[in-house]
């Protein structure tokens, strides 16, 4: 806007706003750091555009209401919901919709008490900590237990609803969980449905994406696959997907942790000195021994994850 008073129309340069507010930085970061998740990135870009325009409208005095920013993230485990929530907190902070931009991540246990009168203080405590930032409620549907009408979760829900309505300037609530259970949760609690404006779905990763994720995870820890190791990993991913308790990127992370364990054992039991290359290479021999290759884990529930 120029300093000219009166008859010149005030203008807002959206592109400049986009650059200077740091929104671009966050979106670039998102693009760079997160593999796959194209629809999610698309939705976040759209949301960012909406918020930028809304901010411009407010600057010109066209809108006064704070838009409803509460969101729900639905998707299977390990699809990056928490990571994206962190980025979202940064984004909202840059745009000035939350004052501090920190993320408080909670589950039912942090909100609901164990006896009468315990829930309200507990929920309020969490809400106070989340003020000025984003409250991320993982597996939010556990708050609502329809089979037990005396469940204290209901109390937490009521407080949450009230704060989501009255303190829209102060915090943004993001609820996350499996898609089908979230749908049922919203159906049973219409109050939430109407207060949540943005529903973002997180698709499962493809095998190819998981392969790239595994490579970048290893790189972050200063390791790398050799050719055999990479192929074994690709096969591992394909087989692992068919087996129970598959949790996308989280399963990959666990598999890599175990591969590192095997690598350490392999190097330790071999004789002779090792060089830096050997110390940081994951080979086929570190991945193949996994139980995933020999028909998978026993499904009777003794083990939660594949070995």
């Amino acid at each position: 806007m120029d300093g000219d008073a009166g008859d010149t129309l005030a203008t807002v340069d959206l592109k400049a706003e986009y650059e200077t507010s740091g929104v671009r930085e966050i979106l670039d970061e998102l693009e760079r750091e997160l593999i796959g998740l194209a629809p999610v990135k698309q939705r976040i870009r759209e949301t960012a555009a909406l918020l930028l325009v809304d901010r411009a409208r407010r600057e010109l005095g066209l809108a006064h209401e704070t838009p409803t920013l509460h969101m729900s993230f639905t998707g299977n485990p390990g699809t990056g919901k928490t990571t994206v929530a962190l980025k979202m907190a940064g984004l909202l902070h840059r745009l000035g919709y939350v004052r501090k931009g920190h993320l408080v991540s909670v589950t039912r246990d942090d909100l609901v008490g164990q006896y009468i009168g315990h829930t309200a203080p507990k929920t309020k405590e969490v809400l106070k900590k989340a003020m000025g930032g984003v409250l991320f409620i993982d597996e939010a549907y556990y708050l609502y237990k329809p089979d037990n009408e005396r469940d204290y979760g209901q109390e937490a829900i009521e407080i949450l609803l009230q704060v989501m309505e009255n303190n829209r300037d102060d915090l943004v609530v993001i609820m996350a969980g499996y898609a089908d259970r979230m749908d049922r949760f919203f159906a049973a609690n219409p109050g939430f449905r109407s207060r949540i404006a943005h529903h973002i779905e997180f698709p499962d990763y493809t095998d190819e994406e998981l392969g790239r994720i595994s490579a970048s995870m290893l790189e972050g820890q200063g390791y790398a696959f050799d050719e055999g190791g990479r192929q074994a990993m690709e096969e591992y991913i394909r087989l692992r997907r068919e087996q129970p308790h598959f949790a996308n990127a989280r399963s990959i992370r666990n598999a890599l942790d175990r591969a590192r364990l095997r690598q350490a054992n392999r190097l330790f039991s071999a004789d002779g000195p090792v060089d830096a290359r050997a110390l940081s290479t994951i080979t086929e021999a570190d991945i193949r021994p996994s139980r995933v290759f020999s028909g998978g884990l026993d499904t009777d529930g003794h083990r939660a994850d594949a070995d």
Partner: peptide, 17 residues
Amino acid sequence: WGNPMFDLKDAKGVMME
């Protein structure tokens, strides 16, 4: 009045109390 408040990030929590 209540417990002392640790780990707050924003004054709003205190103002509410």
